[in-house]
Design a protein around this nucleic acid. Structure first.
Lengths: 197, 197
DNA sequence: GAATCTATGATTAGGCG
DNA sequence: ACGCCTAATCATAGATT
């Protein structure tokens, strides 16, 4: 008997591996569900068994279906890639729709960020209310917004006959902002830097 | 001390919950990676912390990027839900685009399956070339196709004055097909080369 | 609050039916 | 191959710094 220390390495013996797999999968799912209920977070575990195309997924009661749906939506495209190559124009259609969707999302995001910026400047929102998962995009929006603001300010100045030196386009930035921008940056940038709008 | 039996229920105390979350998340990731290496399976764990739009994901070295990519495309929509609630019509636009995309995919799949069926019947393709991901859909297409074929056949029969008994709508199926339907094909059958009909 | 420690509960490898 | 059992390791709640 005397159980050894369990070396973490691929189990070559098939039956042992399978047994271990079943036990550990069960344990894992339990852990996932516990984490979910104890801490009130959406959690999900995905196990792709070899020789089985569908992954085994543990869903938290709430978000699971959604996550699964999200997950299942895209692979269909890949599945199709392996199929008869006829009617590829349909795929092009889909590609187009996807690109359009992506474009819409990006646009939407920018709009919302811009709006948020305005709210910050107006003191209606704090930067602390915001999740900094995409600093690159945010910096872009900050830049764009400040350009707009400065150009308007300069318009006003020249109308008034007084010209601001405008040493930096960032001069109107709330100090708290520049301080906070690079904090808490998510390691994950934008998914597909295919196009800079 | 004497640790109690640990009731699995939402931990209301914030600091305790956070502590538990960190400990358990660490443990969970360890478990996931162990399962992955011990049993040689692609595994992935996703934890959506509240107030953080990006889920924390543990990826298996190989499949991770792919899963992550798939996973990152859609959640953006949800991320936005937590943001300033302006411009929700844009979101509706996106939803619409998503639905349309999904519809297109489904349609495409059916078209391709149907086409593949015809090629099988014409002997231009073997069922071995095909991945049986989705037998339900496939059965649907088989049924639809056979109905069409049989109705045409019956039309011809009545024109010729000879009437086939047509005991089963499946009688026109190539025997090789029924034999192979439930065997699992090779996981890869690209056929990407320009195979014209 | 975060990091570390430690005793106890939880998980699971290995054995057996 | 599957489920149950038991001992041994592992994970972690609670305490401490």
């Amino acid at each position: 008997m005397t159980r050894k220390k369990v070396v973490i390495a691929y189990i070559t013996n098939e039956s042992r591996r399978k047994a271990s797999f079943n036990k550990r999968k069960k344990g894992l799912i339990k852990k996932v569900s516990e984490l979910s209920t104890l801490c009130g977070v959406e959690t999900c575990a995905i196990v792709y068994k070899p020789n089985e195309p569908e992954p085994e997924v543990w869903p938290s009661q709430l978000g699971a279906q959604v996550v699964l749906e999200r997950l299942h939506m895209l692979p269909q495209v890949d599945q199709m890639k392996r199929m008869v190559n006829q009617e590829s124009f349909k795929r092009q259609q889909i590609k187009k729709a996807e690109d359009e969707l992506y474009r819409l999302r990006k646009e939407n995001k920018h709009k919302e960020l811009e709006l948020f910026m305005y709210r910050c400047i107006a003191g209606k929102a704090s930067l602390r209310d915001f999740d900094w998962h995409d600093t690159i995009d945010m910096n872009f929006v900050i830049d764009e917004t400040l350009k707009k603001i400065n150009s308007r300010k300069n318009e006003l100045s020249s109308v008034n006959g007084r010209h601001h030196s405008a040493s930096s386009s960032y001069e109107v930035v709330n100090p708290a902002m520049t301080r906070d921008v690079h904090r808490n940056g998510s390691p994950l940038g934008p998914l597909n830097s295919s196009n800079t709008i």
